[in-house]
Amino acid sequence: MPKVGIEVIRRKSLIEATVDAIHERGFCDVTVAQIAKRAGVSPALAHHYFGSKDQLLAATMGHLLKDLSDGVRQRLAKAETPRERISAIIDGNFAPAQFRPSVIAAWLAFYAQARTTRSSQRILRIYSSRLRSNLTFNLRSFMSREQALSVAEGTASIIDGAWIRQALSDGPSDRDTAIAMVEDYVETQIRQHAGENPENGTAGSRKIQ
């Protein structure tokens, strides 16, 4: 097997081990050596690939963010109306592969590290900006730009809040309830602002199933 192939496999193993280790021990208590052992590589090799534990977390978050973005894009490709695209964005942010205990724990650690780590701050800005931009673009079909920006911010906040609440919960992840909560907020806002701005209409809107 070519060296490039081996490196890709080892990096992926370290990223997966990071997610599992954070879920089991928490970010503060886990060490690079423990992550490396779980991944089946030496600590020296883990440091060679990623440098510090903070850099390993940033790489893990970058990987998870790419998976999340890919999932959203796949759902958007099947959506035909602005309202369907909003639902696709919401559903993608609670994808089963993402909204599970180990990944939720990793994201919570990422948010905490983003306060002090520049690489994590950059990844978080990319995620937040992309989410707000996608929501705003599609919400513009139902309301003014200023209103769409405000509703997009509110929607993003509810999505983030659902993740944090789940991270602090002892129960199993419940994506259906989380999605319904966000959808209810969006639907309420669309109806309210469509009434304030009759020229926008309500074409493409749908009730929550």
Rank of each mutant, 00 (worst) to 15 (best):
L131Q: 09
E84V: 06
R175E: 07
V103H: 05
M1V: 06
P198W: 11
I35R: 01
P43E: 03
R11A: 00
S128K: 05
A77M: 07
V4N: 03
G161I: 01
E183T: 04
A36F: 09
Q147A: 15
N134T: 08
S157A: 15
I190E: 04
S87N: 15
I22P: 06
E80L: 08
S52C: 08
A106W: 09
R140Y: 09
V8F: 00
A59Q: 12
A79K: 12
R73C: 08
R122E: 14
E183Q: 07
D184C: 03
Y111M: 14
S128Q: 14
A58I: 06
A46F: 01
L68Y: 04
S13L: 07
K66M: 13
L149E: 15
Q113M: 06
D160R: 00
G71Q: 07
Q166R: 12
R206K: 15
Q209K: 15
A203Y: 11
A112C: 10
M61D: 00
V4M: 12
S13I: 03
R132W: 09
I15L: 10
E16Q: 09
T177M: 13
D91S: 11
S150F: 00
A59C: 12
S144L: 13
K53C: 04
A33R: 14
E16R: 01
R175I: 06
P172H: 06
R125P: 07
E199W: 12
M61W: 04
K3Q: 15
A203P: 00
A203D: 13
S128N: 13
G161D: 01
T81A: 05
G201C: 06
A21G: 10
I123K: 11
H48E: 05
L56F: 11
P82F: 13
A167I: 05
L57H: 07
N200L: 15
N134A: 08
H48L: 10
A33K: 14
K37N: 14
K37A: 14
A203E: 14
R175N: 10
E84P: 02
L57E: 06
Q192L: 15
I126Y: 03
G26N: 02
V8W: 01
V19L: 09
E84M: 13
I164D: 13
R38C: 13
V151F: 01
H23W: 04
E146T: 11
F94L: 02
F27I: 02
A77Q: 01
M143Y: 10
E146A: 04
Q113S: 12
R11K: 15
Q121T: 15
E146D: 07
R140W: 03
V182E: 04
L149F: 12
L64M: 04
R191A: 07
P2Y: 11
D67C: 12
V103K: 12
M1K: 01
F50P: 04
I158Q: 00
A152Y: 07
S42E: 01
T136D: 11
M143D: 11
I158K: 09
D54N: 08
S169T: 03
I208T: 09
R83T: 02
F99R: 11
Q98S: 02
M181S: 15
A88T: 07
I89H: 00
M181R: 14
